[in-house]
């Protein structure tokens, strides 16, 4: 009986850890993807999760569109905002030879603008975000979960596979990796490096939006939800290893699992300081992150 109860607890911890972890992982991997192509950490990345969640509220609750129609609309909006961020913040700064740090501050400014704009549209209230999948508990082998929770984990797994296929099984993916290694030389190959960077921003924005649609029903939609997720995603990148979307994703999962464990055995208030402490320790031992550096970093 005792061991069975322990297994239940373990199952619940792993499941809830993986759910949150998947979202951190999605933010982390999109940060790493953008970083790989542009050498810039996009501090507005978490805001796309916010935009995804709140745009879902707009289309499904306010406009009363069916979920299946809303999802593509939400993703298109995120893609457009991602493109604007690249066109009107990243590109002008880079064209004026701004150092990466300046460009990053630029993305931080964009994050503030996005929150401000969202505040004008949605106000400061917490919204219930309509769920694409059921939130009713289902019990399998003694472990209770919800289809929404499982959908998050499944979407994450599918996205990881798709991104891997894109990066390692397509010529365009090879070009993305080449731009990450050396943008100038990639131009000599005839790769339009600027387009690869645009793609990274837009693709990351879409992933953020998707994460928002998925996790919104669990977290609730709020204009200030993005900041926390940017930080968690950034932690995931640092913990897993800079430059690799997959290392960053692994870092995100690890943070989610740690959070769930610490919250269960201690107090959720302590979860964050403990996790930050663990990350600090990890980085002292392995400064390049748990899984080390990706090819993009080894210039």
């Amino acid at each position: 009986m005792v061991t069975e109860a322990r297994l239940d607890i373990l199952g619940i911890l792993v499941l809830s850890g993986l759910t949150n972890g998947s979202v951190y992982a999605l933010v982390g991997l999109s940060l790493a993807l953008t970083y790989g192509a542009s050498r810039v950490i996009n501090f507005a990345q978490g805001e796309f999760v916010m935009l995804g969640a709140l745009a879902t509220v707009l289309f499904v609750t306010t406009v009363a569109l069916p979920m299946l129609v809303s999802i593509p609309l939400v993703l298109v909006i995120c893609a457009m905002v991602g493109l604007m961020l690249e066109r009107f913040a990243y590109r002008p700064l880079v064209a004026r030879n701004a150092p990466p740090l300046t460009v990053m501050i630029g993305t931080l400014a964009c994050a503030s603008i996005m929150v401000g704009a969202a505040l004008l549209v949605w106000g400061p209230n917490q919204y219930f975000v309509p769920n694409a999948f059921s939130l009713d508990g289902i019990t399998v082998a003694g472990i209770t979960s919800t289809p929404q929770q499982l959908a998050i984990i499944a979407s994450f797994a599918i996205l990881m596979l798709l991104i891997w296929l894109l990066l390692y099984r397509t010529t365009f993916g090879l070009a993305i990796r080449a731009v990450g290694i050396d943008p100038e030389v990639s131009k000599l190959m005839g790769i339009r490096a600027e387009r690869v960077v645009s793609f990274a921003f837009v693709f990351s924005a879409v992933i953020g939006g998707l994460a928002g649609i998925l996790v919104g029903p669990l977290l609730g939609g709020h204009v200030s939800m993005g900041v926390v997720l940017t930080i968690k995603g950034f932690m995931a990148v640092i913990l897993g290893g800079m430059g690799s979307p997959f290392a960053a994703a692994a870092g995100g999962l690890a943070i989610g699992l740690l959070e769930a464990t610490v919250a269960f055995y201690g107090n959720s208030l302590y979860a964050e300081p403990i996790i930050f402490g663990l990350i600090l320790l990890t980085l002292i031992v392995r400064p390049a992150g748990l899984l080390g550096e990706w090819e993009a970093m080894r210039r």
Binding site: A175, A178, V185, M189, I191, E295, R299
Partner: peptide, 26 residues
């Protein structure tokens, strides 16, 4: 018009095969 740059400038972390593939990108 194709350049062989000074200092070779290979994509070091990529394989020889992948470097050649990038040469044929266009």
């Amino acid at each position: 018009i194709v350049q062989v740059p000074e200092g070779r400038k290979l994509f070091g972390p990529l394989t020889v095969e992948e470097n050649l593939e990038l040469g044929a990108y266009r």
